[in-house]
């Protein structure tokens, strides 16, 4: 899976957490805001985990053209 696809997935998860947490906490539905928190945590974990687990070299390079 490409870096862009992983980051896209991470972004979708982080954004998806927003209504889950809002509705869950406002209406006191614990499982819903917990689901939101887990989804947010998963989204936040993807980029750093991908840096080491998927790129293998630990430097996570792949974007940027190196120009200054």
């Amino acid at each position: 899976m490409s870096d862009d696809a992983l980051l896209g997935g991470a972004l979708v998860l982080m954004l998806a957490a927003l209504p889950l947490v809002s509705i869950g906490t406002w209406n006191d539905i614990a499982w819903l805001w917990w689901a939101g928190l887990v989804v947010l945590a998963l989204g936040a974990l993807i980029p750093p985990v991908a840096r080491y687990a998927l790129n293998g070299n630990g430097n996570g390079n792949g974007n940027g053209n190196g120009n200054e």
Partner: peptide, 13 residues
């Protein structure tokens, strides 16, 4: 945990 979830979601907003 609930405060954390609200804080993080407000940050997303």
């Amino acid at each position: 945990w609930e405060t954390l979830s609200v804080a993080a979601a407000k940050g997303v907003w």
